[in-house]
Write a protein that binds this DNA or RNA. Sequence first.
DNA 1: TAGGTATTTAGGTAATTCCCTAAATTTGTG
DNA 2: CACAAATTTAGGGAATTACCTAAATACCTA
Lengths: 101, 101
Amino acid sequence: MELLEIIKSLSNETRLNILEWLKDPFAHFPEEELSQDTPELGVCVSDIAKKAGMSVPTVSDYLKTMSSANILIATRKGQWTYYKRNEKSIQDLATHIKDKL
Amino acid sequence: MELLEIIKSLSNETRLNILEWLKDPFAHFPEEELSQDTPELGVCVSDIAKKAGMSVPTVSDYLKTMSSANILIATRKGQWTYYKRNEKSIQDLATHIKDKL
DNA sequence: TAGGTATTTAGGTAATTCCCTAAATTTGTG
DNA sequence: CACAAATTTAGGGAATTACCTAAATACCTA
């Protein structure tokens, strides 16, 4: 639990938004572009980039930052990299702030 | 509750350290330099700057950033400005992350 | 193997953050 | 009022972050 790294990974509006969107992909992304196993795998880079209105490389880097901080989980499947939230880490963060910060 | 503003105010190692130190001023600052009502008022800018090993203006600005985000509470008394933690806001942050992030 | 799609890596400019010194302000005191 | 102590404001250089385009890589499929 690298608190500073986690906090930095969240200290950007777009990255916070991505975390929100991934809470409920079906509410935030066009259904036809979601993989059939989205709840399990998450959403792929280019769909997130489109939603964010930013370039794919920028968003790819954001997602990598958040998964390095262990806040997102990446799954490579074929040519796609899917990202989903790491709910455990998010809860651990909340607990850490509550009890230790 | 401006989540992004709060997170940004915490996204720096020195500022995180300050928050830690203020959890227990008697454990982190020389007793003789603490005000007699430190638990109530907190610790003054120059003592925090000394502990941080940074210039007073830099730390003054850090403290202002954190109190603007409502994570610290500032109290001016005479020529000193004392800062203490806003425990309520810190708990609110934890709860927000747990339930809403 | 050739070509297409998705992603990542490289490299660069602009914006923001870090953190300093100097100057200005606030408050207390003789 | 004059001076001293604590803090804040201004201003600036260095480092980091934001976010882009171009190029490279990975993987699929004919």
